[in-house]
């Protein structure tokens, strides 16, 4: 069946429309943060948080197996969010880089490595446990497949998830607007920011929570493995094209949206998975921006 024939069916058209709207919200939120992620070299932090989402998925499945009434998208989102926020704050607390403090703080990559593998292991065991519990109780566990956990399932987006995507984008825009000045100061020069009185641990914690929020929503689009791509590629491409703040943010969002539309189109035409297709298009856009920016 060709792409046009697929879209000619109302059900399929609505499915792609929902995926496009939710994806646009997710990609825009990620693109805004990705500028900071690239400038502050937080890509590995994003990777740690996104893999922590795997533990959250396992926990949500366990809750679903134990209490089938709670097996709804909103509960899964809340569990994932809490899990990722806890991981993000844990990484921030364990590292406390640049705040002049002493004590038992560890290197950032070590802390992320610990949280990443710990959460992945916990997630794998929780998924296995919830499946065996569901089997012993004779409950049909409508949990996500391994494939959708790892690589996303944007086409399975419902209207609730569209609303969640819109809400997340609104929160990201609102919080970034409110904290933009201390956040920019911290991002530009963390060591000096603290000496100027910028509450750097709080600023860092706020950014970590925002990262957790977008990662949770981005796992729906790209899965835990590829969610980080949305937090890196748009910003990295935009920073190769301009060095002014407002144009960088706008360019980053545009690149993200082009990647989303291009990726979904590619997926429709080739029947490839949408998440990896979006990431591939974004990677190509970064390559193009690198050539253009030379």
């Amino acid at each position: 069946m060709g792409a046009f024939e697929v879209l000619a069916q109302p059900e399929m058209a609505w499915m792609y429309a929902r995926a496009l709207i939710a994806g646009a919200c997710i990609v825009a939120a990620c693109a805004l943060l990705s500028v900071l992620v690239v400038l502050k070299r937080l890509a590995f932090v994003g990777q740690g948080i996104s893999h922590a989402a795997f533990g959250g998925v396992g926990l949500a499945m366990l809750i679903g197996a134990l209490a089938p009434a709670l097996r709804i998208s909103g509960v899964e989102f809340a569990v994932l969010l809490l899990f990722c926020v806890a991981t993000a704050l844990g990484i921030a607390r364990a590292t406390r880089s640049g705040d002049g403090g002493e004590g038992n703080s560890m290197h950032e990559d070590t802390a992320i490595g610990v949280f990443l593998v710990g959460s992945m292991a916990a997630g794998a065991l929780l998924v296995q446990l919830s499946r065996s519990i569901a089997e012993s109780r004779g409950v049909a566990l409508a949990g996500r497949s391994w494939e959708s956990i790892l690589f996303g399932s944007i086409l399975a987006t419902g209207w609730l998830e569209v609303a969640l995507g819109g809400a997340v984008l609104a929160v990201i825009v609102g919080v970034l607007t409110l904290v933009r000045r201390p956040l920019l100061f911290w991002a530009m020069d963390e060591g000096s920011a603290q000496a100027f009185g910028v509450p750097t641990p709080h600023v860092r914690a706020v950014l970590m929570v925002l990262l957790a929020l977008v990662v949770v929503t981005a796992t729906k689009l790209a899965g835990v493995v590829l969610a980080t791509a949305l937090l890196v590629l748009p910003g990295a491409a935009a920073l190769r094209l301009t060095r002014r703040l407002a144009p960088v943010l706008v360019t980053s969002i545009l690149i993200g949206l082009i990647g989303l539309v291009g990726g979904l189109a590619l997926s429709l035409v080739t029947n490839w998975q949408p998440g990896p297709s979006v990431v591939l298009v974004l990677t190509a856009l970064l390559g193009g921006a690198s050539l253009w920016g030379r």
């Binding site: 530009m188 020069d189 060591g191 000096s192 000496a195 190769r240 703040l245």
Partner: peptide
């Protein structure tokens, strides 16, 4: 510091080359 009485000039600010300000 909180009152803004202190101005600080670091030894060498490590600012990303691509920082968009």
């Amino acid at each position: 510091r909180a009152a803004g009485y202190i101005g600080y000039v670091p030894q060498r600010a490590r600012i990303e080359q691509a920082f968009p300000l």
